[in-house]
Design a binder for these strands. Structure first.
Lengths: 212, 212
DNA sequence: TAGATTGTTAATCGATTAACAATC
DNA sequence: TAGATTGTTAATCGATTAACAATC
């Protein structure tokens, strides 16, 4: 079996989107190749680390040239599974949920936004772009019928755990959690926590250091 | 000078909000003390690591009892500088910017949301809760006059770098960046990147591993 | 006192970097 | 050929864990 499908160390996984982001900016440039040294300059990681990370997945580089930007983007895309189609729903159509409907990042990463759910009758039936807000009552059936893989969770804290359990029961394999609650999920379920306010904590912490 | 104000290792800073989050949930419980072992269970970090992290800042524990939950929360709050007041603006009143206006996490961490800015004339003058959307034309003066410390950046990618430069020029000391652009900022400026779609990358990556 | 749990040291583990042979 | 740059090994660095004396 290909190295790509084995258990990639988390520490490498975290850097892959960063390599990807920087390479994408270079895609339309005249230059075809990029050296690990140049990529190091862009990302802030050492060239040594970059070569090591990439060599984990295969020999993508060409000695004395560097890495073909287009090919490397393709490879990263495959490694991160962007070519594997995934169905997504958003649960909670409050301000954050609505903002997520308009996020432009889904398609490129292989996600298809299939639905948005809320329990507020005033919201149910409304359209956000071409996505209809549905009742949470329909959520579980929808997950089963539409083979939803991932649910973005933007519900109030109080119902976060219960909603997560319903979603898992219905068959989602991953939760993209925005609720700032420490969800308990079985360990075969993927949990990606997007704790927005942690950013504020870190900034506060660092401001405090600078001025004491 | 107090240890608290020295350069806290980043790896510790990252765990502080997590300790804080879990302790806050216990604040109103009958139990006064928590052991590192119990906190380990909640956070997933080892008790050894937790004791080591906390001892970096002082001796907050009490042998054979554990840590006083209330006191520890207070200490963490001080370490992270939540008692230090900070002024915040949001630049870009699109869907995400609007969602951030409604975020409930500011006050507790010492932030005061002072303003929201956009360049769209249709939005300028509107109110989101009690916050008026102002023109970006006013932004720089506002930053100076209101002594803004941090700007949340939710503008389109194309104007991200330029807007960041204006903000820094005007005097902000930190940028809370939601633009998914690799901003270049001087190294005395704090940059906290909230790259929302990286969560989707990681989820995609892990789904791909599981099913290959 | 016996049991519990901290704070800290030493041992271990894992991640990063330096260095360089291979080779384009 | 000389110069550039990869892929990989060994050395280093840093973070985590194990263990335990101190002590409540």
């Amino acid at each position: 079996m290909d190295k790509r499908s084995e258990n990639i160390p988390n520490i490498i996984i975290r850097r892959l989107p960063i390599y990807y982001k920087h390479l994408k900016k270079l895609k339309n440039r005249a230059k075809e190749y990029i050296s690990s040294e140049e990529l190091a300059e862009l990302t802030g990681f050492s060239s040594s680390l970059i070569r090591k990370d990439l060599s984990y997945f295969g020999n993508f580089g060409r000695k004395s040239y560097g890495y073909d930007i287009y090919c490397l983007l393709q490879e990263l895309s495959i490694i991160m599974g962007f070519n594997h189609p995934k169905n997504l729903i958003i649960v909670g159509a409050g301000h954050l949920g609505q903002a997520l409907v308009h996020n432009k990042g889904y398609e490129e990463r292989g996600y298809k936004l299939k639905g948005v759910f809320d329990k507020n009758p005033k919201l149910i039936g409304l359209f956000l772009d071409d996505i209809k807000i549905r009742s949470v009552e329909e959520m579980c059936d929808f997950v089963k019928e539409e083979k939803i893989d991932i649910a973005a969770l933007t519900v109030p804290k109080g119902v976060a755990q219960k909603t997560a359990e319903l979603l898992i029961e219905a068959g989602v394999i991953g939760i993209w959690d925005f609720t700032e609650v420490a969800l308990k999920v079985p360990n075969n379920i993927l949990l990606e926590e997007q704790h927005i306010n942690e950013g504020l904590c870190k900034l506060s912490c660092k401001i405090n250091q600078n001025f004491n």
